[in-house]
Design a protein around this nucleic acid. Sequence first.
DNA 1: ATGAAAGCGCTAACAT
DNA 2: ATGTTAGCGCTTTCAT
Lengths: 338, 338
Amino acid sequence: MEKVTIKKLAEELNLSASTISRALQDSYQIGSKTKRRVLELAAELNYVPNYHASGLRKKVSKTIAVVIPEVADSFFAQAINGIEAVAQESGFHVLIYLTHESCTKEQAILKDFQNGRVDGVLLSITAETAQYNYIQELISRGIPLVLFDRVCEEIATAKIITNDFESSYQATQHLISCGCRRIALLSASNSLAISKNRLAGYKQALIDLDIDFKEDFELACSKQDEVNYQLIKELLTRPDRTDGIVATVEKQATIIYQVCRELNLQIPQHLKVVSFSNLQTAAYLNPALTTVTQPAFDMGKAAATSLFKALKGKNVSLISESQVLPSVLHIRESTCFH
Amino acid sequence: MEKVTIKKLAEELNLSASTISRALQDSYQIGSKTKRRVLELAAELNYVPNYHASGLRKKVSKTIAVVIPEVADSFFAQAINGIEAVAQESGFHVLIYLTHESCTKEQAILKDFQNGRVDGVLLSITAETAQYNYIQELISRGIPLVLFDRVCEEIATAKIITNDFESSYQATQHLISCGCRRIALLSASNSLAISKNRLAGYKQALIDLDIDFKEDFELACSKQDEVNYQLIKELLTRPDRTDGIVATVEKQATIIYQVCRELNLQIPQHLKVVSFSNLQTAAYLNPALTTVTQPAFDMGKAAATSLFKALKGKNVSLISESQVLPSVLHIRESTCFH
DNA sequence: ATGAAAGCGCTAACAT
DNA sequence: ATGTTAGCGCTTTCAT
């Protein structure tokens, strides 16, 4: 079976290649009978337009890249769902890249995007990312980029986030109202804006409600679960043990449950736990986990929608597309007696 | 800032385009001093080779597609992790497509792959897929395709699966040994080979251990959670209520827990549950969930490895690359008193 | 309404 | 070791 190209169709129909091309694009210049003939033959011969050829000509790929730290995390999985929904609707294709919190990897991945492979990028930066010129560089080269969840202030583009400060404030406040006085915060990093905001919300709640806070109750976690396990174990075996934890990363909650089991600590009697988490099973954990649930699907959707807006309309200013979608605190057993 | 192409580099250095091209590819034909000059200027001007141009010429995209029903499922999330690890290592890019169990969508997605956008495909078919000629068609057109998890016998290519029959047999046997006599099976579909195998394993265990089985204890679930909720509720409110369930889809377990709570049924006292699941939190559910854990990461890795083998070596027969990776039964509270 | 011609940026014969 | 040429398949002026 020989390859079917526009040229081939042209020969068969005694038309020129340009006419075929126009007919396939439903151009107004082509007569309806001709169009029909072309379309029919194309269908019959199973003609498929070559992706690279049209991409080279038109300088578009109809593809976006999603660059995230991790996929085995409910937040990102649901965000991908939202992104994919919008992309499929707009006829775009979605490339996935996992950085596994490696800044070097992130940099290499973004660098590669200057070659025309993608038309736009959705990015949630790594916990290591501390310098942003390769992101700026990409934008300068005309590749629109939207940040979501893990954003950075330094880049002037659309940022889709949730109300991290308020959520964290609320979570902390909730722990206090449940009687906690020595509250710890587990964050993803020291540098991420998202972590800083959550830390700030936590601190502000402590200040507002007149609770002491100790620096050594703020733990920046690692990307290695094993290290976090040790960190949390250490935290829970101190003499002045904490009586409440705000976990800002979903995975940390599981580790806390694990450690508590090993140390024979009861949740919520000995320790109360609230976690930023999108786990479907939160309500069925033992004990049911109090969560700050982020609007993951909608954040993905919003990020993708903004990006496509920029991709379609030429003069869309992404900066003004930023959004803050609210999270919801679900109070469950891990913070309450019952 | 003007676009930097090979032509531009050629002019600057008073060389021909082909020399530049060869130098950039580190061809043996080019002298080392010339190579150095070219590489230096390329770096200086931040030259990035155009993806579509080389793709058009070489007829490769260095891209694979992963087509799956769903991403918000631990199995597929972990499988993607495995796939991505191998892809990154091989310098390949990964496109993600979600079918949401729609066969029509799957067909449209695969159809599009004939245009050179991808070099190969990893596929886990939908529960609706009942006819396979569009898959065969793609393979006939020279796009290698590897099936994983949800495979179909009809296609002669590499299939990476887990031991579905045995796992299901084992799970059922375990329920029986825990005292269950009216065991139900929840499957994903009537047509998927994976579902059939799990059903067969279940039936065989019942036969071998001399337990009656009733047709109406085999439920093929829907893609809509709401429908499954009703289905499971109906199952658990029958006069001759089941006393044990084998759930073959992760999400079903959560629904079972939900329904049991609403009906005030105790797990495992009134009902024992085992689920095919890769949930990290299975051990921390209330009660801890007995699971058949699939080697999701390794299956993704194996599928991708086979595909890349076919993509690199020209004459690799994918059929002989099939593998069966074993699942593990983790016995927890949901099937045992303690 | 249709065609001719040029070219997107790169690579690979085929020279020399 | 380097240059010349042609062409991948498509789109898009510019003509008619």
